[in-house]
Design a binder for these strands. Structure first.
Lengths: 211, 211
DNA sequence: GTGCAATTCAAACGGCCGTTTGAACCGGAA
DNA sequence: TTCCGGTTCAAACGGCCGTTTGAATTGCAC
């Protein structure tokens, strides 16, 4: 693979990450992507074997980018007090509310997937043994009573992620009329505090017998 | 408006509710609807002035059907102990996991909207002063400390709805391979119990100063 | 410079989408 | 029976979608 080819690949991936994060996979067209990347229409099929192939590649990059992120590195979180670990994790999930950097885009993409997983994403999680939910499950479990079922930890983790992603996905909606939330740094801090406090106060009371 | 015309209208609405609940608004085509309703392609535009008009009508029906529902009538919930009211509300939001009746379809439709609100829905909530979140806010507020900000109640309610809707939307996904949750009556009872316990234990610890 | 493979490009393809068209059909009033 | 507004119908429209095509261009080995 020569240099100019990689250049085009990178242009496409960069534009795709931006658009997939902003609108989700289904609502992003290949024409949107090639226009933003300033490349030819056929380039996506040539380099990635189609829109699905591109998204698969982007998901891989996003997953690696997030798991290798220093901010919520799994090992680092384990060494922290569980309350602090949870707070950092929630704050990290809410990051796209404030910043538009690459990490935020990756999180935003997964927030779309948590709303309605695409076929490509489902195949992706089926392939990768390490679920993108693992970090949430690990943190949640530290708050559950000893006898809690593994499935209870999974459900609680899904609920925790769901609470964060609904704000990330609908950010613009919540700034508008019926809600009028001023989404600035102070607000996000307090929102993260709210979600964290509910989890800290509530998770220990889960009845571990079933679920 | 004559009889046969109303007959066609009702066929369309019934089919539309079923499909909008199953797949959401965007992923449901007018060809899907007219095929299920066994009416002509142009009938939707004739009777409802287009797909958006039909959805607007369906949203109105769903909203009225839910607010008038005896199971979570706002007044009834207020007369119950707050823990019992919350448990019933959560159980109600999870109803589509078990039953495929009309009420479940309405809830499922709003679960799709909570993932990514359509233009029609945003106009709908802007018009109706009584938000579909009101019930959740009312219940959540009973658990918050006295000084809690109104916006904190709204955020907590959004989080509560988000936890329920993520399971409703992705029901089929969670039954499959990486998760393998057996979604039967017992599971839903325990899931509702989990969500309820977390809320009961956590909501009182929200810091009301901000958010 | 020549040859060849990799890459880019404009154009078109087939398919699904929501909507429109204009004729056909229907039932009840005149 | 004639007429006419309300309703149904098959067909087509224009638009966006992901993908394919085949020729033109590029960059490197020889």
């Amino acid at each position: 693979m020569t240099r100019p080819a990689e250049h085009t690949r990178n242009l496409i991936i960069k534009a795709a990450v931006s658009l997939f994060a902003e609108k989700g996979f289904e609502r992003t067209s290949v024409r949107d992507i090639v226009a933003k990347a300033r490349v030819n229409q056929a380039a996506i099929n040539y380099h990635f074997k189609g829109k699905d192939g591109l998204y698969s590649e982007v998901l891989k990059i996003a997953f690696e980018g997030l798991t290798e992120s220093s901010e919520v590195h799994a090992e680092e979180l384990k060494s922290l007090p569980r309350e602090e670990a949870l707070r950092r994790f929630v704050r990290h999930q809410l990051r796209p509310l404030l910043f538009r950097d690459e990490t935020s885009r990756y999180i935003h993409m997964f927030a779309w997937e948590s709303a309605h997983p695409s076929k490509v994403f489902r195949k992706f999680v089926a392939t990768n043994t390490t679920s993108y939910l693992s970090a949430a499950v690990d943190i949640v479990r530290r708050f559950l009573p000893p006898g809690a079922h593994e499935r209870a930890a999974l459900c609680a983790a899904i609920g925790l992620m769901g609470q964060c992603s609904v704000f990330v996905r609908n950010r613009d909606l919540f700034t508008q009329d019926p809600f009028r939330m001023p989404i600035d740094e102070r607000f996000v801090d307090e929102l993260a505090d709210l979600i964290t406090r509910v989890a800290i106060g509530g998770l220990p009371h889960i009845n571990g017998a079933g679920v």
